[in-house]
Simulated assay, not measured.
Amino acid sequence: MTHKAVLLVIDVQKAFDDPRWGRRNNPEAESNIALLLKAWRETGRPIIHVHHIGATPQSLFRAGSASVDPKPEAVPLPYEAVIRKSVNSAFIGTDLEARLRLLGCTEVVVTGLTTNHCVETTCRMAGNLGFRTILAADAAATFDRTGPDGRLHAAEDIHAITLANLHGEFAEFADTRTLLDAVK
């Protein structure tokens, strides 16, 4: 992993603590994100935080509400970049690609919430834009979802299927421990 590998911390916000989301997988995701942030900070690697701001007044991510604040494990330091988005991809309607190019970045390590929404969409676009994309699989999480047929899908299955969808074409995968070893 290069010294210019950017850590993307996507939507690690208090809105995801709302009980309306239901049951989720990987309760250690935020702790793993905190470990990765610590390692990136200690080694002087670039970090970009991405925060979702909802476009509607009823959104859990409503601008100005406490729910858009980052979770304690992912609070940006004053010198770290924060990008605000209103759609699933961190690239659409933002200057993320330009920032990455300006940094001379060729690889991104992606973490955050939720695996099958903003994390997946951002990984797909990063891969399509030519960045080596590594998803920290244990530093991401998602929630149970009900399909259009009324069938409940477990968060663990959704997470695993999302990884399968990204595998080989859009992203590589690593666990937090492997990434921590790589940045030493």
Rank of each mutant, 00 (worst) to 15 (best):
L100F: 13
P46F: 07
H153Y: 15
V82P: 06
I48R: 14
C123R: 10
E172M: 05
A34S: 12
V108I: 10
K184F: 15
E80A: 10
S65I: 04
L102H: 11
V108F: 01
S31W: 07
A137Y: 12
T2V: 06
I53E: 05
T133D: 03
P46G: 09
F131N: 08
S65A: 13
G112Q: 03
G147H: 11
D17K: 06
K184Q: 15
I47D: 04
R177L: 05
R145H: 13
R23I: 10
T115V: 05
P76I: 01
T56H: 13
D69E: 14
V12H: 03
T94R: 06
I83M: 06
Q13W: 05
V82H: 08
H51M: 15
S59W: 00
Q58G: 13
I53A: 01
G112L: 03
K184S: 14
I83C: 07
L113W: 05
I158L: 14
G104H: 02
S86H: 11
A5M: 08
G168D: 03
I47S: 09
D95I: 10
E73Y: 12
I92L: 11
A98T: 10
A55I: 13
T56Y: 13
I33H: 09
A140T: 15
T121F: 06
I53V: 15
A98E: 11
V50I: 15
D95A: 12
L179D: 07
